[in-house]
Design a binder for these strands. Structure first.
Length: 478
DNA sequence: TCTGGGGTCCTAGGACCC
DNA sequence: TCTGGGGTCCTAGGACCC
């Protein structure tokens, strides 16, 4: 806990939805819901207008549609959000070398390490200037929390939403937190809340009264201990700039449950390949392969296997995943499959073999003079240098063979940018029965009008997102 | 039309070792 | 010579976060 509020937490307001509204003028001031549009989709972000209808993150899309039937429903465009996020993180980097991103739209900044602030007044000035810079360069609003610890800075930014700044003066945290629900403390979710409620604890003050021993008894060593410290306002966790990834995973929920064992095996192999693609793209290898299966009744299980050494070989991961699948009963159907790799390293088992052989060979050279192929042969089998990384090697395989029209329609996802040879830039409002509807407008323009085309219209083509701010560099390499 | 996808951290039991 | 006491690794599951 610092004596000055020099830890800053930035949280962009309704980030995905706000980015879509900024890029599509006709959606400004309107309810916008971003999320999966399939039969099993959930809400990723709802604009504040949509929240007024009761729509919120993680809500099933079907429920959102019942609550807000007139909202715009869009699929997320991560490449676009990443580009904006990059601009925001760049601004944070100007404040301090110590920036800890938590997600695309959230980060901690250590203002003291950046030398920009050592007292409340200058911290507030830095925070307000940051909010202004973010608005100018991205056209979006973010909320800022300032406090003497990470936990309090995060609570402050939550209080500041939307489009605000809250500074918690060190020394005032106990009276501020005391009467609030325990849910205000990060790490207290529905389960912990219920657990505490049954023990008669609902407010932060009651957590303090209960005492550390009681909390440890209720919640366990780590959780109970940290909750007690947080309730007192004690939090000395530093802002850490770089954190190494610990696992890489890929999963798919299917529109309809899978029953066919062969199909299930095929999907597991495809997931294993995608997972390895990401693993290699990040320059990693891993020792533990994890298979995740969610069954028709939503019961979820994992099976894992740890190899003797780390690998980034798609065949090795695929075979391990297949072995793990053999351990799982899938009768009744499967709604989700996932493949992950943990125990990450930046070398592989094959590297070690190659190294060991090279050493043995080096020894053999002086020893017997009968050295066999040193390294080159095994090296080729090992690191197959620079894989294709995250290349989109596979399109989703539809459950049933697609018609040509369906294939053409898939090119036009709702919300994605397009360009028409005559009408210029616009975005897909919807598609179906062989037609695609486009609204012609762009970030700086007034709300545009809608036209409909055949899905195979040669004048219409997909395009990259346009910058949200004139001269800005938001155009994502999507 | 009930419940995504990508992560992190913790717990608990058994194996194994000293 | 009635059952010690850690430590670490592995596996499975669960809570939580965005």
């Amino acid at each position: 806990m610092r004596a000055a509020p020099t830890i800053l937490h930035l949280d962009m307001d309704a980030f995905f939805a706000a980015a879509e509204q900024a890029s599509k003028p006709s959606l400004r001031g309107k309810p916008v819901v971003v999320g999966g549009l399939g039969p099993r989709g959930v809400v990723a972000t709802a604009s504040y207008e949509a929240r007024r209808f009761g729509v919120h993150s993680a809500m099933p899309m079907a429920q959102a549609r019942r609550l807000a039937p007139n909202a715009a429903y869009l699929v997320p465009r991560f490449a676009f959000y990443r580009a904006i996020s990059g601009q925001v993180m760049e601004l944070l980097g100007r404040l301090s070398p110590l920036v800890e991103p938590l997600s695309l739209d959230e980060a901690f900044v250590d203002l003291e390490a950046g030398g920009v602030a050592d007292d409340s007044a200058s911290a507030r000035v830095a925070g307000e200037r940051l909010r202004r810079d973010i608005l100018v360069t991205t056209g979006l609003t973010g909320s800022v929390g300032l406090a003497g610890s990470k936990m309090l800075a995060k609570i402050a930014s939550e209080e500041a939403k939307p489009d605000g700044l809250v500074l918690i003066e060190p020394g005032t945290e106990r009276e501020l937190l005391g009467p609030r629900s325990v849910r205000i403390i990060p790490g207290v979710g529905p389960a912990t809340d219920e657990h505490l409620r049954r023990a008669g604890i609902t407010t932060v003050a009651e957590v303090v009264e209960a005492g550390e021993d009681e909390l440890v008894r209720l919640l366990g060593r780590a959780h109970g201990g940290s909750l007690y410290r947080m309730a007192l306002g004690h939090d000395d966790r530093p802002v850490v700039a770089e954190r190494d990834a610990k696992s890489v995973s890929v999963e798919d929920t299917f529109d309809v449950d899978l029953h066919d064992r062969l199909r299930i095996r095929l999907e597991v192999e495809r997931l294993a390949e995608r997972c390895v693609g990401r693993l290699r793209g990040a320059g990693h290898s891993g020792r533990t392969i994890v298979l995740k299966v969610r069954r028709y009744d939503f019961s979820t299980l994992t099976r894992s296997e740890t190899l003797r050494g780390p690998t980034d070989d798609p065949v090795v991961v695929k075979e391990a995943a297949a072995r793990l699948l053999d351990l799982v009963d899938t009768t009744g159907g499967v709604r989700l499959l996932g493949v992950g790799v943990s125990g990450l390293a930046d070398y592989t088992q094959e590297d070690l073999f190659a190294q060991a052989e090279a050493e043995a060979a080096a020894g053999a050279v002086t020893g017997t003079g009968t050295a066999v192929g040193t390294g080159t042969g095994t090296g080729a089998a090992g690191t197959q240098a620079d894989g294709p990384g995250e290349a989109a090697t596979s399109d989703p395989v539809p459950a049933a063979p697609a018609t040509a029209t369906e294939t053409a329609e898939r090119r036009w996802s709702p919300g994605h940018d397009v360009r028409h040879a005559v009408y210029g830039p616009g975005w897909v409002q919807g598609s179906g029965v062989g037609r695609v509807t486009v609204r012609f407008e762009e970030p700086g323009s007034p709300p545009g009008r809608v036209r409909t085309f055949p899905v195979d219209d040669p004048d219409l083509e997909p395009s990259d997102p346009l910058p949200l701010v004139p001269g800005g560099a938001t155009g994502a390499a999507a």
